[in-house]
Design a protein around this nucleic acid. Sequence first.
DNA 1: CCACCCATGTAACTAGTTACATGATTTC
DNA 2: GAAATCATGTAACTAGTTACATGGGTGG
Lengths: 179, 179
Amino acid sequence: MSLQHALLTSIVEKPCSGYELARRFDKSIGYFWHATHQQIYRELARMEEQGWVSSVEVEGGRAGKRKFKVLAAGKKELRRWASEQSEPFRLRDEMMVKLRADAAVGPLGLAEEFERRLRLHEQELQTYREIELRDFSDPDMPRETQIHYLILKAGIAFEAGRVQWTKEALKMLRQEAST
Amino acid sequence: MSLQHALLTSIVEKPCSGYELARRFDKSIGYFWHATHQQIYRELARMEEQGWVSSVEVEGGRAGKRKFKVLAAGKKELRRWASEQSEPFRLRDEMMVKLRADAAVGPLGLAEEFERRLRLHEQELQTYREIELRDFSDPDMPRETQIHYLILKAGIAFEAGRVQWTKEALKMLRQEAST
DNA sequence: CCACCCATGTAACTAGTTACATGATTTC
DNA sequence: GAAATCATGTAACTAGTTACATGGGTGG
């Protein structure tokens, strides 16, 4: 299971509460590993049991707020996991199934949904490009920043590919709608 | 849930047994919607209960072999689902987490794994290109074939992007290994 | 004082994975 | 006659989602 490792990574980067973790996750690792807050709290509890992380009540914060940090055993586990082989992730895209369904049972009017998606992907791509300009303009980057940039570039390439492909799909879908 | 719809689509394309479905799935829809045979049998049973598909024992085949076909209610459901909005799928890529972990806790020796992946992606890309040559060379394609080609092109673009990005990642990882 | 955000969780369900089990038929 | 493949499934577990629940603090 890798959610635990994704959480470990995020806490190593910056110790925090479960709530903060859930919000930060959305904005960083969440781009390529999504989790809900319920899952996060569950895994935090498990990892604390396993001795990978520990938490202390935050004095002066809201009641019950706990700050988590990664213990030595957690770091060791993170290193162990990172050096393991892993399978490339699988795509899981409903739109492809819908396209095949359209091919099999006749036109299903998918163009509208593709247009909606095109706008979404273009917006996402723009967001990424803005981050690129804001955070990675300086050509002289330390190792850590280089890696973060590399990850962003994967996201940019992926979204750019999606945008381009979606346009192509729309061209096809519109073409036949007019005949 | 979309596994059911993916299965409906596949059975609409060609009625078959659960076993055949599982194998065919791997080679077609499975590229963007994976499922194990256990899941497939479970969903087939559910869909039969719901009246979306029906099965008949195959005479002359192996004992117990059943052939499934999609009923009118199943086709109706497929159409209903296809016209629904759906969320773009999320990436879920362990390698990105590992890269971030590497940035946070120091070099983890990920280059080897990236090289392995590069070979895998290049191989996959070549497989796709061979299918492209074999099945989609004729420029005069009927609608159904155009859609299948469109789906393949998404796969090609995606794998090509992965290959390129993996090379870039390797360049970075090797660069620092030599210093 | 009301709405919103912070901060925690539980419970129930659905989907996906892994391990096990069984027996028939074809191929060497 | 042994091994591989066809063909079906059950059981147990793990991961992910959805719905619900609670209460404190802050800003208008």
